[in-house]
Simulated assay, not measured.
Amino acid sequence: MANLTLLYAKAALTGFTRRGTALPESTVDVHVTVDPAHLARYNKVCGFGVRDELPITYPHVLGFESQVRLMTGPGFPFPLPGLVHVANRIRQHRPIAVSEPLSLHVALADLRPHERGRQFDVVTTASVDGEEVWVDVSTYLRRSGGTSAAPAAHASPPAHVGPPTPTASWRLPDDLGRRYADVSGDRNPIHLRALAAKAFGFPRAIAHGMWSKARCLAAFEGRLPDAYEVDVRFKAPVLLPGEVDFSSSGTGDGWRFALWSDRPHLEGVITR
């Protein structure tokens, strides 16, 4: 994780001077193999069991350093501090075995207006021997004041009218952000300590959005098909420590799920 530490330091020192109207065409290609010990730690913190296949969210962790490298590289128009991770969509074409080496391709795409600023995608594709097996699209928002731009291009999952009936409740410890940071490499200060989070306007440290997504999918373990897509919108931060309610319900071709406390934190859909 040393490289990520250097990248975060670079972002803190140079990011606030960044201005621009276009995304660079830079890409990153890496080849990775899964460390079973690291995977076991990830599974433990996210609630997955031990299996011979990767959780659908795990390749996101393998590509995270490359994603940060693009967002701290030459020509990137926004400071990394202050970017808001608003959505994530993953499509798995088939299960990925733990033993399979992966080729990851990471690119920036689709800078577009948002009603609160501008948003863009970080697209990570995983292939095995030239076969695309997995695609991850993370959407980030750069807020700006006084804009009347159109809403996001991707439609959100159907919103609940009120809090859904919970099927489980989870108590989240105050060190959850640090534990997930240890396995994901995402050491954004807002997830690590309350004091750092307060500097960015949060009363306490907040959970990682991708931990929230992974924990929800762990609740479906054993029921998911080999090929499916899972699309989530991150609605409001989950404060640590805290307690959240998880709910799920079947749809015609999958499931809908949500995390709530006094407000919605995450809403998502799984499509076969």
Score class of each variant (00 low, 15 high):
R143M: 12
G177Q: 10
H160C: 12
V128D: 06
H154W: 00
L141E: 12
A155D: 11
P113L: 12
D136L: 03
V135L: 13
P157S: 06
T147H: 10
S144E: 15
G145K: 15
R178K: 15
V133A: 12
A150F: 04
P113T: 09
E115D: 11
P113C: 08
L141N: 10
T125Y: 00
A153C: 06
P151L: 09
V106E: 05
A159E: 14
T147V: 15
S127V: 00
R112F: 02
T139E: 07
T125K: 09
L172G: 03
V128F: 01
R171G: 11
D175E: 14
G177C: 07
P173F: 08
P163C: 10
L172E: 08
E131T: 15
S127N: 01
T167I: 06
G162A: 15
G146K: 07
H160P: 08
G177P: 05
V122H: 11
A109Y: 09
W134K: 10
V122K: 06
A152L: 10
V161C: 02
P173T: 06
Y180G: 08
D175Y: 09
G145V: 08
P151N: 09
F120R: 11
H114R: 02
A153F: 00
P166H: 07
A153E: 08
H105A: 12
D110A: 15
V123L: 13
F120Q: 08
W170H: 14
S169A: 13
A153W: 01
R112A: 12
L111K: 09
G117N: 05
W134T: 13
V135S: 08
T124N: 04
Y180M: 10
R118Q: 14
R178S: 14
R142S: 07
G130T: 13
A153S: 14
V133T: 13
S144R: 14
T125N: 01
V123Q: 03
T165Q: 13
R179H: 04
G162N: 03
V123E: 04
R142D: 07
R171H: 07
L176F: 11
T165F: 00
P157M: 03
T165P: 01
S138F: 00
G162T: 15
D174V: 09
P164G: 04
D136S: 15
P173S: 07
S148Q: 13
W134S: 09
G130I: 13
Y140S: 09
V133N: 10
H114V: 04
W170T: 14
A126W: 05
A107H: 05
L172A: 02
D136F: 03
L108Q: 05
L172W: 06
R142A: 12
P163D: 08
T125D: 01
R116F: 07
G117P: 05
A152S: 15
V122E: 05
A107E: 14
Y180A: 05
